[in-house]
Nucleic acid binder design. Structure first.
Lengths: 210, 210
DNA sequence: AAGCGTGGGTGACAATTGTCATTCTCGCTG
DNA sequence: CAGCGAGAATGACAATTGTCACCCACGCTT
């Protein structure tokens, strides 16, 4: 064992959050195999995760992004605000630069994709625990490729439009006028270089701007 | 081959397929914990999976559905055609009745969702190995709830419409006339009880009819 | 041969969507 | 105070979308 410092002797205490029960359990099993890592709590959603981290003060918090009630990014942001010492590692399916950017803004120390080799996870945890930053290589390069050009309103409207709601419905749901909704949509469509609301929504989604 | 009584003593040989490397490794770790289950091969996509199963003739083949090149359902169908003795367990994120129906048609013995408890996986594998069928409870009930009401054309058209293509584009891509495309779309919309093409596409997707 | 179902097509019309220019408020900021 | 910019709304117009009633050509039945 390389002794970078004092604490590399002790086991690394981890809290794990992931909404798919099966994946949660499997990841826990994977980490428990490593002698120096111990999963002290598991959470199925953002709220549970936040509680667990505050209660256990783990060394590292590993979380998915898309979860019920509170996203992993939200939890990370909240932890940053509260200045807990816990380091955060995001593990997600999505290679969206928007997510990565938000993760870093929320103070995450790691951003990994689920399609990387399983063996690398434990290693990433150790590195992060030592204060290093671990970003999935493919993302690291193009990370700051492009900024989200959408305003809040445009985002909201686009999200609903992508679900198939008509302009009128969107308008009443947001307390706006029908015409205004169409204006925002039009703006969003042109900003994203799309031909219509559906394509615009699709583009925004794949970029992680939702 | 010995009677069912004896071989329940031996370890169950499993091949595992899943495109997300991390989940693949984690599930393998989870299964290896069990003394009576042994993961003899792992595959990252449908092709590899098929090869691995044919080469190793495992007792049970566990696979995700959505994978590159060949879906888990395709692999299952191929295995059925070839009459290998291997039993198939589908493990997926999607609670789509269409998927379940296709899985059963392809001769799968199990259909589980990733959001169930991790501990249940090993158990399901044992049951399936004994010749039982294991269907995720929530799906088992409504499984045959409703059949896909869409015709092939409607499906094609709806798929493209859902991507954001305009009627004209869809028409030229399928070699149809603009009006015909709109007729199909209109039919699909009314069959699905939607209000427009986007909603229709969304509904069809969640039902697994695509 | 008459009848029928299916896949594809027309044409017409109403509703929804996309685009623009313009207006009205606020809340800032110089 | 004047002026600017963001957020929201109007109105008008063109394009696209959704609906419907029919038409046509084939391929099968009877």
């Amino acid at each position: 064992m390389p002794s970078t410092g004092k604490e590399s002797r002790k086991t690394i205490r981890v809290v794990l959050a992931e909404d798919q029960g099966m994946v949660l359990g499997a990841l826990a099993a994977l980490l428990e195999i490593e002698g120096d890592i111990s999963v002290i709590a598991k959470a199925h959603n953002g709220n549970e995760a936040l509680d667990a981290v505050l209660a256990h003060k783990p060394d590292v918090f590993i979380t998915d992004i898309e979860m019920p009630h509170m996203s992993g990014l939200d939890v990370a942001a909240e932890l940053k605000r509260r200045r807990t010492g816990t380091r955060v590692v995001i593990v997600t399916t999505f290679a969206r630069t928007g997510y990565l950017r938000r993760a870093l803004e929320a103070g995450a120390s790691g951003y990994l994709l689920k399609d990387m080799r399983a063996e690398e996870l434990a290693d990433a945890v150790r590195r992060v625990h030592q204060g290093l930053r671990v970003i999935h290589p493919e993302l690291a390069t193009e990370a700051w490729g492009e900024m989200d050009p959408l305003t809040d309103r445009e985002r909201q409207v686009l999200r609903l439009a992508g679900e198939g709601l008509a302009s009128g419905d969107i308008a009443s749901q947001l307390g706006l006028s029908d015409g205004t909704v169409r204006n925002y949509l039009s703006e969003a469509i042109s900003k994203l270089g799309a031909n219509n609301r559906v394509e615009a929504a699709r583009i925004a989604r794949t970029k992680g701007w939702l």
